[in-house]
Nucleic acid binder design. Structure first.
Lengths: 299, 299
DNA sequence: TCCATTCTCTGACTCTAGTCAGAGAACCTG
DNA sequence: CAGGTTCTCTGACTAGAGTCAGAGAATGGA
């Protein structure tokens, strides 16, 4: 990795933690420990289960409980048993809590405004644009790819979304029963692999690799959640699967796709795939691609 | 201020404090309280007085003292009396301290690398470029402009640098004695104003305003430190002085300049100044400009 | 020379933030 | 319905970060 890039990133980290980080806590905190402030924020408009809050904020259950007691004592929240599961407790903001949260909101706005305030119009526009770019790319960098079992709930979630999307986008609709679907066993070691892309723990994409004996590897069911598109995740999934195929000794990766998926087709072309004749009789496919992968591609 | 801009800045703040801020502390901290880590870092290669460290880090003197004792006990620093002032104590890293600091350094590098690692080459280049832009503009936004007395040490520092630079850049050199210099009284209320631009408390620029009775206001001694150029500080100084002139009821601001200062000349032109005939007999001036300021210009 | 000031240090605190080990209620499964 | 699991809560801790009020040495100015 480039040394100059690293030192630029470090400079950025310094500037930003100084200017944003410190102020952020300072602004948010005023008169209230920032743990409480964050919790108040996270409870948000529609409230939520204690369990969900604990996960979201990554807090110890004892600690969270104490924070809730403190907010409750200040009359900002109410904690009631869950209507159907008596073990779970749900938290809601009171009117006072909502008001308090609104002032936190204002403070965040004030912080943002204080960053922009000294700049002129041009500079503001450029700063905001650059921030959007940094945010987008940092988000992209936060996405993790993990190999999971195709039966894992996150994998299932992605596959359901994938099928729903195909159903909507294919001119003919999509009926899984008519398609050449690999069964789950084909996408799990040793016959294959299945990757899930996650952002903050939430599944936002997937891709499967079939490794048939004495035949090219095949990429199946590559999907990225609409909200996470444009972050290069599809490309990362592709590259990661190619690398894994190469590690399994495959020299060729191939795949088929439907003509409605134009973005996917141009991704394949720009990623080194070449269109070839039909190598299967998938009824939903219009295009077949393959790529020679001699060495694992650089990341 | 634009609501969309504010919410973009807030989104950025969230992403960045999550992704950079938290990790930053986590990486830096390992095995050592981050207060100590920051201090170790700040002591740096050439060491420094306790007083300077206290200012730089903004710590309570008692707290800092305790941190130093702790680093001393670990054999990372030595604290000795200042050679000339027995009250002051100076801190230096030991070899062990230098080694420890180097590992902190590595961790910062590792953090930076971990942000870039999941991205491909194109994305990395874009992220680094956007970070540079954000850093630059946040730095610009951190610069403060304060009205000070022209005799203030910060003002004097800027003026000395200004004269040195003129000496170097004018074809003819620059001798303050030959120039039409306003005396300090002319740049201090009620006869004028003097602004110093500061970044993290360090003076990095200045500009003076002369308010002669029954005559146009005059801008003098506008200077920005070379390291701080390109941040729009010169323009901000200009705009701020115009606003102040307008508040004093002036309808016209004018100034003279030397042909060697090409950047200044194009700034004046792009900022609404128009070249006029000589209105004084400043020997070092080649160009004279003026600008009508009916209403205070928008910031 | 004396007195106010500067500078560092110690002692005695406070507040956040967080961990760990269980207790007890509610739920689920066989 | 018994036994394990899930979920929240309490009690008992710890560590970090920082504040505040002086004490005491060194210095500088009248």
């Amino acid at each position: 990795m480039d040394v100059a890039q690293i030192s630029q990133v470090r400079r950025f980290n310094r500037t930003v933690t100084e200017r944003v980080g410190v102020l952020h806590d300072h602004y948010l905190g005023r008169g209230r420990p920032i743990g409480e402030a964050r919790l108040l924020w996270e409870i948000g408009g529609q409230g939520g289960d204690v369990r969900r809050l604990r996960e979201r904020l990554g807090l110890d259950s004892g600690y969270l409980s104490r924070l809730l007691r403190s907010l409750e004592a200040d009359g900002l929240v109410t904690v009631r048993p869950h209507p159907t599961d008596g073990r779970v407790r749900t938290v809601h903001l009171t009117d006072a809590g909502r008001a308090e949260r609104a002032t936190l909101d204002e403070r965040s706005d004030a912080l943002a405004a204080s960053l922009l305030q000294p700049l002129n119009t041009t500079q503001r526009a450029r700063l905001v644009a650059a921030m959007a770019e940094v945010g987008r790319l940092l988000t992209a960098a936060t996405v993790t790819l993990d190999a999971v079992d195709p039966d894992h709930p996150d994998a299932q979630h992605c596959l359901r979304s994938y099928f729903t999307e195909l159903q909507e986008r294919f001119e003919t609709g999509f009926d899984p029963a008519r398609s050449l679907l690999p069964n789950a066993g084909e996408l799990r070691p040793p016959h294959g692999e299945f990757l899930v892309a996650r952002l903050h723990g939430e599944p936002i994409g997937c891709a499967g690799l079939k490794l048939p004996p004495n035949a090219p590897a095949e990429i199946k069911r590559r999907w990225v959640a609409p909200a996470a598109r444009g972050l290069g995740i599809g490309r990362r999934l592709l590259a990661e699967l190619e690398a894994r195929a190469a590690r399994h000794g495959c020299g060729i990766v191939r795949l088929d796709t439907n003509r409605a998926l134009t973005a996917a087709i141009s991704l394949y072309l720009s990623h080194g795939f070449q269109e070839v004749g039909a190598f299967n009789n998938e009824p939903y496919a219009h295009h077949w691609f393959e790529k020679r992968i001699t060495t694992p591609p650089p990341r």
